[in-house]
Design a protein around this nucleic acid. Sequence first.
DNA 1: ACCTGAACACCGTTCAAGT
DNA 2: ACCTGAACACCGTTCAAGT
Lengths: 192, 192
Amino acid sequence: MSPPLAARPSTRRASPRLTVGDWVEAALDVIGEEGLGAVKIDPVAQRLGATKGSFYWHFTDLASFMDAVAAAWCRDREEMRATLSALDELPPRERLARLIDLIQDTRYWRLERASREWARTNLRVRHTLGRSDGWMREAECKAFRDLGFNEEEAALRANTLFFAGLGYIFAGPDDGRLDRRQVDGLLDVLAG
Amino acid sequence: MSPPLAARPSTRRASPRLTVGDWVEAALDVIGEEGLGAVKIDPVAQRLGATKGSFYWHFTDLASFMDAVAAAWCRDREEMRATLSALDELPPRERLARLIDLIQDTRYWRLERASREWARTNLRVRHTLGRSDGWMREAECKAFRDLGFNEEEAALRANTLFFAGLGYIFAGPDDGRLDRRQVDGLLDVLAG
DNA sequence: ACCTGAACACCGTTCAAGT
DNA sequence: ACCTGAACACCGTTCAAGT
């Protein structure tokens, strides 16, 4: 419609040259807003004010692009480890409540669900998710040990809590944060 | 390649005329084998030895086809209610173990995961899944009440068990059936 | 080096034409 | 009534041509 002279509307940057990072960031935005299935080349290109040709300069194909997006997601995810160890000094019961709150953050639900779906086809995502799940379970397990349970009892309780959290993300109510009372109730069951 | 005279290879029926049910059944097979994303018109048509034109005689479009498939899935799912009430006479602890076994059936994992994903875009699936989840949670809750817990305590334990089961389906090991000892351990945590 | 724009294959959809 | 086969739009991919 408009002549190529006219400045294209760009959501993210004034600079005419795009970087790999720009494309990756845009894809993560799309995943968070519309889900994994909404990552298509042309729409993402339009978000950045570019064409498909530009995409294929930076990336071999959709799959390798998604690999790069996965790698970026993995880097973000690895930061969770620091968040977990930051809780290490808290008393165990309080620590568990905080771990539950971490999982509960609604902003991450969609990305969390997307990553589980993604892990089934992407080795890198599967691997990072496995590691990150491991830290979370170990943190939960340690909290139960600190509460006085032996290794086996603590592991059983940690696994139950861990999977309950995931189940809640996948099948719980969309607006469903557990309030303080419900979290306490849950912990009474598992730690009582 | 081959002349139209030659009999087309049909996986499911010799009869030349297809019914709505044939298409729906084929779609459910595909979902179970390759996931929700693999349901495409041409591949399903080839499974049935037909062309896309035949599809569009029976169905308005992919969406309404998927609605019909969803309806069929819902009918199957409703049968779970009978299965649940069949367990009603068992002692509560044994009943809980059986409920866990129900969820654990590996054959249903993929369809179960697909249905959760599906529920986010299909009202009918969401509704049936909600009802079916309700029966499962009520059955679990009743078992805990029969074990002597009051209403609130039973609900808390049932929810924990329910979501843990779902979390296990979505994020647990692919070959991961819990053995008798692990199920007992889980029930010790929740019912002990 | 980075990007455009035209071309092609694949899949959902339509439809005129066949039995 | 039920189906085929050709046509078209959409999206992933390629590539020659531009700056």
